[in-house]
Structure formats: C-alpha cells, structure tokens
Amino acid sequence: MKKNIIIIATAILFVVLFIVAASFYNNQKDKALSNASMEKIEHMQRDYSPTMGPVDAKVTIVEFFDPACGTCSAFYPFVKQLMQDNPGKVNLVLRYLPLHQNSDVIVSIFEAARLQNRFWETLERAYQTRDAWIEHHVSRPEKLWGQLDGLGLDMEKLNEDLQSEEIARRVKLDILDAQQLNVSKTPGFFVNGKPLVNFGYQQLQQLVESEVAANY
C-alpha cells in the first residue's frame, strides 16, 4: 500500500512540475517577446496598412491575418465588437500574413480592392464565402473572384492592379515584418505593440482593456 502512495505522489509531482515549468517558461517567453517587439516597433505598422476605426484612438490592435484562416475569420467580428465596446478608443490595423497556399493572391486582391476603397467590403465578403473558395486548405483565387459581385468593384481595374509591383512589394514587406516580430501563426495580435502571447478571445479582451485603462 505504501508503494501505491509513492507511485501516486510521484505521478502528481510530475504533473505539478510540468505545469510549474510551463508557466515559468511562458512567463519568460512573454517578457522576451514583449521586449523584442518593442525593439522592432517600426515593423508593427506601415503607412499603407489598412486601418479601421478612429485615427486618434490611443489603443491600436495590429492583426496579422490570412483570409483562409478559420480562426482569423472567427476573430473578425469579435475584434469589431471590442472596438464598439470601447467607442473612439480602439482602432485596428491589418497586416497580411498569407500562410495558406495561394493566399498571397487573395490578399493581393484585397490590396487591389483597397485602391478602389472597397477593402473592408471585400474582406468581409471573402470571410462570408470562405467555403466557396477554400478547398482542402488551399485558396482558390479564381473562385473568390466569382463571389465579388455587388461590391461595386471595377473588376477590370482590379485585375490590372493585381499585377502591380507596389502590391507585391507590400505583401512581401508584411510577411517580412511578421518574421521580424516572430509571428508564425495567424491571427497574430499586438495591442499597442504588446504581443498576445497566450492566445484566446478572453486574453485578447483583457489585453485591450488593460491598454484602454492605461491610456484613458
């Protein structure tokens, strides 16, 4: 019987040790990541980055996203809700991180739509119709194309702009910035430069609220 107690105690010890080590490690990483992203703050936002919400807001959410990423799509209404809950205090900057195959073309379409001032409409339409243009985790730009009716886009111009070097440069620069900021998954969030290390709705909400409280 005494042995069974030794065994159970050892098993519990292993679990406790694991949890303690994990939280210690995450804490250290959290600090290191925060410091690293503060040093690389110039990579956080580019003058061309699409922005939503009040320009003078003191809290800025930066989101690296891939339109083919289901979690990005699920977070989008939540992020909008966060902005509504803090009216005038929070804005959103989107950065491209096309990790899925062909997603670079999808974000180029967004960027081309932005030249026609239809970025957010196009983004929302793409999120709504995800099932229609994503097949086995591969983006099918030609199928998204058919979903863009009624947005007021000049499709001919859109097609022309897709070839532009400036758009390719922007997408590339966003990807490079993501690497600099250690973002390897989407959505990758920063709030006023602080990375969201433990991923989740609640954690993001807490981070935004703590920044709102600190700045207002």
């Binding site: 694991f18 080590a21 994990a22 490690y25």
Partner: peptide
C-alpha cells in the same frame, strides 16, 4: 517508470510548451 514519465513529460514540454 520514472525514466518513461520523464521522457513523456519532457517530450511534451518540448513540443507543447516550447
């Protein structure tokens, strides 16, 4: 058993935490 447990938790630490 201790060795096997250390390997189990250690490998999970490498993959899931780190």
């Amino acid at each position: 058993w201790l060795i096997a447990m250390a390997a189990l938790f250690g490998s999970l630490f490498f993959s899931e935490v780190m």
